[in-house]
Simulated scan of single mutants.
Amino acid sequence: MKRQQTCPCDSGKSYTECCGVLHRGDATANTAEALMRSRYSAYAVGDEGYLLRTWHSTTRPQRVDFDPALRWTGLEILGTTGGSPFHTAGTVEFNASYRQNGRAEVMHENSGFAREDGRWVYVEAAV
């Protein structure tokens, strides 16, 4: 992804200054929402390594399969619970827009996050 390109997480910042910092390992997410945004961006840019590193050890898959016919097009955060720098768990509810085979779609999820070894990680979709 080019340095000046806007970050896929819709923060308005450049990818390099936003989620790129987390993907490169120069920093870690300080909130569950920041981790969720960076994971969305990792899906958008195809960064399997980052996704696996930020997945809870008890729910982490062996690999991430990317669909070449799917393109992530936008992220809307609907709400959060917990997940601050002072919490150990939290949820982030969001809508992730994408195009697949020429059709616009939206994925809605309420994701659960927890701290593992001091870092925020994705656990699973919360019910």
Rank of each mutant, 00 (worst) to 15 (best):
Q100A: 12
N95Q: 14
R24V: 08
C18H: 08
V45E: 09
V123Q: 03
G90K: 13
T58M: 10
V127L: 12
A104T: 14
V121K: 01
C19F: 08
A32C: 03
Y50P: 02
G12C: 05
R60D: 05
L70E: 02
A29V: 06
Y40T: 03
Y40M: 11
M1G: 10
S111V: 05
I77K: 04
I77V: 14
F113P: 05
R119Y: 00
R3G: 02
L52W: 13
A89S: 15
D65N: 11
N30M: 13
A126D: 11
D10V: 14
W55G: 02
E48D: 04
C18R: 06
A69I: 07
Y122S: 07
T88Y: 11
G46A: 06
A44M: 03
G49T: 14
G46Y: 08
E93C: 04
A34V: 09
T81F: 07
Y15F: 15
G118D: 04
T58H: 13
T16D: 15
C7T: 11
C9D: 09
G112C: 12
V45Q: 02
Q62N: 14
P8W: 05
R103F: 10
G25T: 09
S38T: 03
K13T: 11
Y98R: 10
N30S: 14
G12W: 11
S38Y: 03
E17A: 13
A29F: 04
S84R: 00
F66E: 03
V21M: 12
A126I: 06
C19D: 11
E17L: 11
E124C: 14
V127A: 14
G102R: 09
R24F: 09
R24N: 12
D117W: 00
L78C: 01
F94Q: 07
R53W: 01
N110Q: 13
T73R: 05
D117I: 00
T73A: 11
A27H: 04
T31E: 10
V64F: 14
E17C: 03
F66I: 09
A125N: 10
G83Q: 07
Y122G: 02
G46D: 10
V64S: 02
S97C: 04
W55Y: 09
H108S: 07
G79R: 05
S84T: 15
G74H: 01
L22Y: 13
A125P: 12
G74D: 10
E109I: 13
Q100P: 03
C7P: 08
S38K: 06
H87D: 15
M36T: 02
P85A: 11
F113E: 02
E33A: 07
L78G: 00
M1P: 05
A27S: 14
C18K: 05
S111Q: 10
N101I: 11
P61E: 13
A34G: 13
A44C: 07
G12Q: 07
V21D: 04
T73M: 06
V127K: 12
S84F: 10
Q5C: 07
H23F: 07
R63F: 10
T81A: 12
L75Y: 00
D117P: 00
G118A: 08
T28Q: 14
V92T: 06
R24D: 13
E105D: 12
G82P: 01
T54V: 00
E124H: 15
L75V: 05
P8Y: 01
G79E: 05
